[in-house]
Structures are given as structure tokens and as C-alpha cells.
Design a protein around this nucleic acid. Structure first.
Lengths: 113, 113
DNA sequence: GTGATTGATCGACGAATGTCAATACGACTG
DNA sequence: CAGTCGTATTGACATTCGTCGATCAATCAC
């Protein structure tokens, strides 16, 4: 989770070849699943998705999940790094959106196993 | 990952309600994703799926993933606990199979977010 | 410019995780 | 019954993770 690299889930993870996962693909895919493997992050995703407009800023999220602002920001960074949300700065606010293509790609990668 | 409880992915995780994930559902779902969030476990899953007959015992897996027998056993326990593989003891050997319904259910839960 | 607000980053901490070597357990084999 | 083989479990260890409070950086309002 330390790598700064942003994953392109669609490009790298979708079509699991049918063969055995090589070490590198496994590591990339695992990073995405690891990002999904925390209750707080799942709730953040679901919260953003449920927002009208489909986007939310940190301040919209802090209170519903009951975590400190710093912690929420940390989780959002991980989600963004995994390509699961996008981030757009507008003035003071940072707006996050769920990247549905990424979610779909992850789902497809599972189906292909 | 410490809970001994085996998750029924199909029952608990499939239909993400469209609303915001409650704490409990998030925790259950997260546990499954956490199980998928390790490269070694993804490769184990993929190895088992690629096996003819669709099943494998620990001894078939140790060498391809390059981990100690104890570690592989540990990973399989986590996968089984998450409902992603089934375990069947036949004589000396323990045979593991990928539970595709579980994988599908996980995929669906993502699509529903 | 001053001050307030939003978000990111840092340092610290305990808890959880992945790994191994060693050992214990069960089932088959002689 | 004694030995062997396939697994599971244990104890230890370094690493990673989730969280907080505090601080920093940028933007807006006056």
C-alpha cells in the first residue's frame, strides 16, 4: 500500500488470462483487493456512490464514518491509488467519485478465475 | 482475519442494498476482500482453478508458489474461512476447490455499489 | 493582509499480517 | 506397533496497517 503508483485497473487486471496468475499480476490485483479489504473504505465507497451527483468531498464523509479527517483523507488516498475513485480539486474542496469501470473490471477479473 | 467463522458470501454479501453499507455488512464484505488482498492467495486460487479436476492438495501448491508448507496451509485456511474455497479431507490429503459462486457473489456485490 | 476553512501530511502507537522453522496430529504402510 | 507422509498448529519475528492528534498548505471571505 506504500507505492505511490496509481493502478489502472481496467488495463491491468480485467482479463485474467485463464492461466495461472503470474507474480506481477497477482501483486497488482492484490493491491486493489487490499484497498477494498477495509470496512471503513467500503463504507466510504458506498457513501460516495449514494451521494446525489455521485461525488463527495472529505467533509461530507468524515462524520458518517465516524473517523478523523486525517484518517478519511488517508483512506481516500488508498482508494484513489487503487484506481477505485477519482479525485478532482475544485476550489477548497476535493471531490471524489467512484470509478465504476474499475469496480466492474475487478468483478470481471474474479469471474475469469 | 482472526474470526473462526466461515462466511457465506452468497448469503451475506451479494445484494448490496443500493443504500449505504452498514457497519456490519461492511465488516463481512471487507473480510472477503481482505482474503483476496494478498498476492500469494490470489496465486493459490488461480493455481487451484487451473488444476485439472479443479482441485488441489497443499502438496500441489507449495512448490509453485514458493512458500513453506505451513504458510500455504495458513493461506488456505484464510481462503476457506472467507468461503472462497472448500476443503475436503480424503485420506491423508486435503483437497481444496475454488467456490465459484462465492467469486461471482463478490463480483455482484461490487456491481451493486 | 488576517483569519477561517478544507484537505494533506507527519509522527507515533498498538494491532494485525505474512513468513518461517519446529512441532504436533492423523492416516496410511510396513 | 513403529515409521512415514501430508497437514495443521504454534511461537517468534519483522513488516504493514489503521488510527489519532498535530501540523502544514492552499484557498476563500472579509
Amino acid at each position: 500500500m506504500t507505492l505511490p503508483l496509481v493502478i489502472d485497473v481496467e488495463a491491468c487486471c480485467s482479463p485474467v488470462p485463464g492461466g495461472v496468475l503470474d507474480t506481477e499480476s497477482a501483486a497488482r490485483l492484490a493491491r486493489v483487493f487490499k484497498a477494498l479489504g477495509d470496512p471503513a473504505r467500503l463504507r466510504l465507497l458506498s457513501l460516495i456512490a449514494a451521494q446525489e451527483g455521485g461525488e463527495a468531498c472529505i467533509c461530507n464523509l468524515t462524520e458518517p464514518v465516524g473517523l478523523s479527517q486525517g484518517t478519511v483523507s488517508h483512506h481516500m488516498k488508498i482508494l484513489a491509488g487503487a484506481g477505485l475513485v477519482s479525485r478532482e480539486q475544485r476550489g477548497k474542496w476535493a471531490y471524489y467519485r467512484v470509478q465504476r469501470q474499475a469496480l466492474d473490471a475487478v468483478g470481471r477479473s474474479l469471474a475469469g478465475m
